[in-house]
Amino acid sequence: MNPSLARLTQLLPPPPEPREKDWRPAEQALRVDELPSDYKELIHAYGGSNWDDYLYLLEPGCPNDNYDLIEWEDQQTEALDGLWEFEKKPAELEDEATRVIPWATTDNGECLYWLVRPGQAADQWTIMVNESSGDRWEHFPVTCTQFLASALTGDLKSTILSSRFPLAVHEFRQLKAV
Rank of each mutant, 00 (worst) to 15 (best):
E131M: 09
L148V: 12
T9Q: 14
W137F: 08
F140V: 12
V32Q: 08
H170P: 07
L55P: 10
N64G: 00
Q28N: 12
N108M: 13
Q10L: 15
N50I: 11
P141M: 07
T106G: 02
V32P: 03
F165P: 06
W125M: 01
W84R: 10
P36C: 03
L8W: 11
D68M: 04
K157H: 14
D65P: 10
S4A: 15
Q28E: 14
R7M: 07
W137G: 03
T145P: 13
L167A: 09
G119P: 06
G134H: 05
L115F: 03
E27I: 13
Y54I: 14
A151K: 03
N66A: 10
W137C: 05
W72A: 03
W125Y: 14
E138H: 08
D123L: 04
C144F: 00
L112R: 03
A122M: 11
S132P: 03
S162C: 04
E71F: 06
L175R: 05
G48N: 05
R31S: 09
K89M: 04
S158C: 02
R99F: 02
W137K: 00
A168E: 15
R117C: 02
S158Y: 03
L93Y: 07
E73C: 06
S163G: 01
V32F: 01
W72P: 04
S4Y: 09
Q124M: 04
Q174R: 15
C62Q: 09
P15V: 08
P102R: 00
F147Y: 13
S162N: 12
V129C: 03
E71G: 06
P118R: 08
L55F: 02
F86N: 11
V116P: 00
P13F: 13
I127M: 08
L161V: 13
L11P: 10
E138L: 09
E138Y: 09
L148S: 02
A45Q: 10
L83V: 14
A149F: 06
E92A: 14
Q174P: 01
M128C: 10
E171A: 05
Q76F: 00
S132V: 04
A121Q: 13
A91E: 13
Q124D: 10
E94S: 06
P14N: 00
D135M: 05
L83Q: 12
E78S: 05
A91I: 04
I101W: 01
G154W: 07
L35G: 01
F172Q: 04
N108P: 00
E41I: 04
T126L: 01
M1P: 09
Y113I: 02
A149G: 09
P90T: 06
